Simulated scan of single mutants.
Amino acid sequence: MDMGADTDAVVERILTTYDTITVVGASAAEHKPAHYVPAHMQEHGWRIIPVNPAGGTILGETAYRSIADLPEQVGLVDVFRPSEATPEIARQAVAAGATALWLQLGIASAEARRIAEDAGLLYVEDRCLIVEQRRLRLEAPSLS
């Protein structure tokens, strides 16, 4: 996909399709974007599934040590990790059956893009969920 209008369409599709966001690199530290971005999305109706190697609890949810440890089907994977870590995360997302991969603002990887797109995943990079949610004035979709 080209950036711009095509990416805007993918962003809107993701935010209107997925009611659960698996957050790789989620943080319990309130000052970090990896905490306050998923917290914002949670406040607007999205369910958050944190993934952090330390485990524990983040945003009131059980934090899983890896994508592979999730006890349910994965849909949207949102990434708060350095760009160089994203190809491996993309491979893990594909292996887990994810259907969308979102790299947060400042995170981009041609290799992660290729892995995701070759597997048919919706793909967004270098965009912030909060910015896009506010711009599109969306709340979590009701899928029940």
Rank of each mutant, 00 (worst) to 15 (best):
Q73W: 02
V74S: 02
V74Q: 02
V74G: 02
G75L: 01
L76C: 06
L76P: 12
D78W: 09
D78N: 14
D78Q: 10
V79L: 03
V79F: 08
V79R: 01
F80M: 08
R81A: 12
R81I: 12
R81C: 06
P82Q: 14
S83G: 05
E84H: 06
E84K: 02
E84N: 10
E84Q: 13
A85C: 12
T86K: 05
P87C: 05
P87W: 09
P87R: 03
I89Y: 13
I89K: 02
A90Q: 11
R91H: 14
Q92L: 09
A93W: 05
A93D: 08
A93G: 09
A95T: 10
A96N: 04
A96D: 03
T99C: 02
A100K: 11
L101R: 01
L101S: 03
W102Q: 03
L105D: 13
L105I: 07
I107D: 07
I107V: 15
A108T: 12
S109M: 09
A110D: 15
A110P: 04
E111F: 03
E111N: 01
A112L: 05
A112P: 01
A112C: 08
R114H: 12
I115F: 15
I115M: 06
A116H: 04
E117S: 05
E117L: 15
D118Q: 12
A119D: 11
L121R: 11
L121I: 10
Y123G: 08
V124D: 04
V124N: 04
V124C: 03
E125N: 00
R127L: 00
R127C: 00
C128K: 00
L129F: 11
L129C: 07
V131H: 10
E132W: 08
R134H: 11
R134G: 08
